[in-house]
Computed example of a mutant assay.
Amino acid sequence: MNKTIMSAVAGALLVLGAGGAGAAAPADWSKVAAKNITLFHPGVSPLEWITKGTEHGGARGLKKGETCAECHSEETADMGKKMASGQKIEPSPIAGKASSIPVKVQAAHDGDTLYLRFTWKQPKSSGAAKMDDKNPVKIAFMLESGGKVELADQSGCWASCHADSRTMPNAADTKKKYVKGGSLAEGRFYDLVQWRSGEKKGFDGHVADTRVVEGGKALVSADGKLDGDSWSVVFARKFTGGDGDVKLEAGKAYNFGFAIHDDNAAGRFHQVSLGYKLGIDTAADLTAMKF
């Protein structure tokens, strides 16, 4: 009997370690409400650019408390075309790069674990040189709680994107994403979760004074698959974790944004969302209801 129990435990640990079935996601995602969000290539539009009134007309709105999504949510595809083509704020356009990616996003929870599902059609490859040899696709989302990160309530993850970060023009290759005044101890950080297609695994990190892709304790599993020409990636994340993990609670909403690095891209050559709100059992742009 003891051997049987030990074998069962060992088998369960192997499954968990593979990131495959560590949590029970909704059995039928078709019953979970979906929000369609179009990601777009942002070009060279760091935080310093969006807050500079002489270059970005929306800077005035930001100062008044408006959000990026309020102004741009219906025009992200058009914005992506201008930037991916080099027509606007993209000094190094990649011929054939997908300028935007429509994504269906779904969220649910079981009272202890949040489940996020992202589905999208694989864009045509540009044929450009691979920036990330290991991973044809990466997808990441970020959460922020309480608006302690300046402008996170309005700009989504843009507060972690700066003109001196690597892959930006004339920036040092060693400079990672960061938050101005970022501090885990003081709660000024983004919770960062990522899945990589080539490595077939998830990463649980954060962005404070620098970006760290590991060390979080909340991620249970991250699984993705390509079915024909359609991707589906599901994350399972505990409500509570450790340092760098935003604590989730029913009845509250959190700043939320996500990005896809398609076509073996790296750095700023990704497609990104504007900033939205993720609610747990409460009305928001995207709401995770208990199932």
Rank of each mutant, 00 (worst) to 15 (best):
N2V: 11
K3W: 06
K3D: 13
M6H: 13
M6P: 04
M6N: 13
S7A: 15
A8M: 15
L13C: 10
A21Q: 06
G22H: 01
D28S: 03
D28L: 04
K31W: 12
V32P: 13
A33M: 09
N36Y: 05
F40C: 08
P46R: 02
E48I: 08
K52Y: 13
K52N: 15
G58D: 09
A59F: 10
R60D: 06
G65D: 08
T67W: 03
T76V: 13
G80D: 04
G80N: 05
K81V: 13
M83F: 09
P93W: 00
I94T: 10
A95W: 00
A95S: 11
K97W: 02
K97A: 01
S99H: 07
I101Q: 12
P102T: 04
V103K: 07
K104R: 10
R117A: 05
T119Y: 01
Q122E: 13
K124D: 14
K124M: 12
S126G: 11
S126F: 09
G127A: 00
M131Q: 14
D133T: 12
K134Q: 06
P136W: 06
E144K: 06
V149L: 05
D153P: 12
A159K: 04
A163Y: 05
T167L: 00
K175T: 09
K175G: 05
K177P: 05
Y178P: 02
S183H: 02
A185R: 11
F189A: 10
F189N: 03
L192G: 04
R196L: 02
K201P: 07
H206N: 12
H206Q: 15
H206W: 15
V207N: 00
A208R: 02
A208L: 02
D209L: 05
T210D: 09
E214G: 05
G215H: 00
G216R: 04
K217M: 14
D223T: 14
D223P: 07
S232T: 14
F239W: 04
G241S: 04
D243V: 08
G244E: 08
V246N: 04
L248D: 02
A250Q: 14
K252R: 15
K252L: 10
K252P: 03
Y254Q: 03
Y254W: 01
Y254C: 01
G257D: 07
D263W: 09
G267Q: 01
H270N: 15
H270R: 12
Q271S: 09
L286S: 04
T287N: 07
